[in-house]
């Protein structure tokens, strides 16, 4: 092939352009630390990239949902713990009272104690987490129950402003389209179980200083206590489950982060090695071009 001056020049320019383009690209990748500068850099990996990004962001949200759920469950757990203690104290009083002879002066002290216990249990039923009354369900900003004199003596009733509430489970999404119920049905625990009626009955029996009546109430009180123990066990189990899922998500996140790093982070070692070799080529091209282009017959004829 016949070689002409222009051929040399054209080839040199094209090669230099190619080299400097590659050097600029590598430099950009190294300085930014990212190899996916534009969506056209690696279109075949975009799908994976987006799916990992989406999963990471969702996991973050699920974590936040789980934390929120755990604080609700912890609120319920301590509420049931306190309720259990209240019931235990009531049972202790009932046991002592039933062993005391009728008309003993001790009954008055017992009655006062039971009254305090009723108030304590009302507080328990009105437990709030983050300004939400957890047993009020869909009307969470309003207290669940209150004590009122309904004409026929003291009674504990659901807050009248939320009586129209349809009870549903308050849930937290913890995995894609998988939810865990973090609420407990306050109505069945505190109202339908008649726990307050039983405590008020106890108080009435104590006021009446009737030890046999007190004795008859003990079975109901034990049943009520068992309800709270069961609910507490359920809250604990759910809380454990959430903690476990949180650990699973954290492990998955670690793996996702690793895959993401593989997709978008520049492998500095490879890139710098490549850069060094490209720069060597570029410098060699420059020096060789400078020498070759100078060669001309003109240098030798006078």
């Amino acid at each position: 092939m016949r070689v002409t001056n222009n051929m040399n020049v054209l080839n040199t320019i094209s090669n230099l352009q190619q080299s400097i383009r590659e050097i600029a690209g590598l430099q950009q990748k190294i300085s930014s630390g990212q190899k996916m500068q534009q969506i056209s850099d690696d279109p075949s990996s975009l799908w994976k990239f987006f799916s990992i990004k989406k999963n990471l962001a969702c996991h973050e949200q699920y974590n936040s949902n789980i934390d929120n759920g755990i604080s609700w469950l912890n609120g319920a757990d301590s509420a049931f713990g306190s309720a259990n203690q209240v019931m235990q104290s009531a049972l202790d009083i009932a046991l002592s009272a039933s062993n005391t002879g009728n008309n003993s002066t001790d009954f008055e002290a017992y009655a006062i104690k039971v009254d305090t216990l009723i108030n304590q249990l009302i507080d328990v039923a009105n437990t709030s987490v983050e300004d939400n009354y957890i047993f009020s369900n869909s009307k969470g900003k309003q207290p669940f129950i209150r004590q009122e004199d309904m004409g026929g003596g003291e009674e504990v009733i659901i807050n009248p402003s939320i009586t129209d509430t349809i009870f549903y489970d308050s849930t937290r999404e913890i995995l894609p389209r998988a939810s865990v119920t973090v609420s407990f049905n306050g109505q069945s625990l505190f109202i339908d179980s008649s726990v307050f009626t039983h405590l008020l009955d106890l108080k009435d029996a104590l006021d009446a200083k009737d030890s046999s009546a007190v004795n008859a109430l003990m079975e109901n009180l034990t049943n009520d206590q068992n309800l709270f123990i069961q609910a507490r066990a359920e809250a604990g189990a759910k809380s454990n489950r959430l903690e476990m899922i949180k650990t699973v998500l954290e492990n998955q996140n670690a793996n996702l982060q690793k895959s993401l790093a593989g997709l978008q982070d520049t492998d500095i070692e490879t890139a710098t090695t490549e850069l060094a070799s490209r720069m060597l080529t570029y410098q060699a091209t420059l020096s060789c071009t400078a020498k070759v282009l100078q060669i001309s017959l003109l240098n030798f004829i006078s």
Binding site: T4, N5, N6, M7
Partner: peptide, 25 residues
């Protein structure tokens, strides 16, 4: 296609291009 173009251009230059050394000779 640019690199193919370079090859064509080289072929064209090979025949039609001016080599100054050659002309001087």
């Amino acid at each position: 296609f640019n690199s193919i173009g370079l090859q064509f251009e080289a072929q064209r230059q090979s025949l039609s291009g001016v080599s100054i050394d050659e002309e001087l000779t």
